[in-house]
């Protein structure tokens, strides 16, 4: 049993019962959680920005940074663990994408992240069955691989299930 901690722009997956897949302090970033019921694999990518076109070089070192490259990278990783390469039959959940108070269009990156992620998921015929997006608080996300249970927490707001 171990914790798979994902930083900004990182992705990973585990099928080891007892493992926890975790990412800390999502602000405007979004955690895309993919669960493959057939192999009981849990994957997560910590998406920071909507589109990779702003820095194609970064894609080479950290594809998970962007929605349009992070989700394909996670699917590829999960396919090496016996999951369907297009995510067929996957359960998708999303968390994060917080906004600041009084955001204007420029600063509402959380919303643009969520929209971009959904657009990419649609290309694979996937949609989220549960999401905790937006609002004005940061979120830490933990997923228990054994049960697929997702726990969110935020300083001063306790924790809750997704």
């Amino acid at each position: 049993m171990s914790n798979l901690i994902l930083g900004v722009g990182e992705f990973g997956a585990s099928k080891t019962p007892g493992d926890i897949v975790k990412t800390f302090a999502l602000g405007s970033c979004v955690a895309v959680i993919l669960m493959c019921p057939k192999t009981r694999t849990v994957g997560m990518v910590h998406v920071a920005l909507p589109e990779s076109k702003i820095n194609p070089e970064k894609v080479k070192t950290r594809p998970g940074y962007f929605a349009d490259t992070g989700i394909p990278a996670l699917l590829k990783k999960m396919s090496t663990m016996g999951c369907d390469p297009n995510g067929r039959g996957f359960i998708v959940k999303l968390a994060g994408g917080a906004k600041i108070m009084d955001p204007n269009n420029t600063f509402n990156i959380g919303k643009r992240n969520a929209l971009s992620i959904k657009k990419v998921l649609w290309k694979y015929g996937l949609g989220s069955v549960a999401e905790d997006l937006g609002a004005t608080y940061s979120r830490t996300v933990s997923v228990a691989v054994s049960t697929g249970e997702i726990t969110l927490s935020s300083p001063g707001r306790g924790d809750w299930k997704l």
């Binding site: 900004v8 800390f24 302090a25 999502l26 602000g27 405007s28 970033c29 920071a48 917080a98 906004k99 600041i100 108070m101 009084d102 955001p103 204007n104 600063f107 990156i109 959380g110 004005t136 608080y137 940061s138 830490t140 935020s154 300083p155 001063g156 707001r157």
Partner: peptide
Amino acid sequence: MMCGSQASDSLQYHLDQ
């Protein structure tokens, strides 16, 4: 704060346009 913060005051301030 948008990049991530583990304090309770994160994102709890107004943006001056």
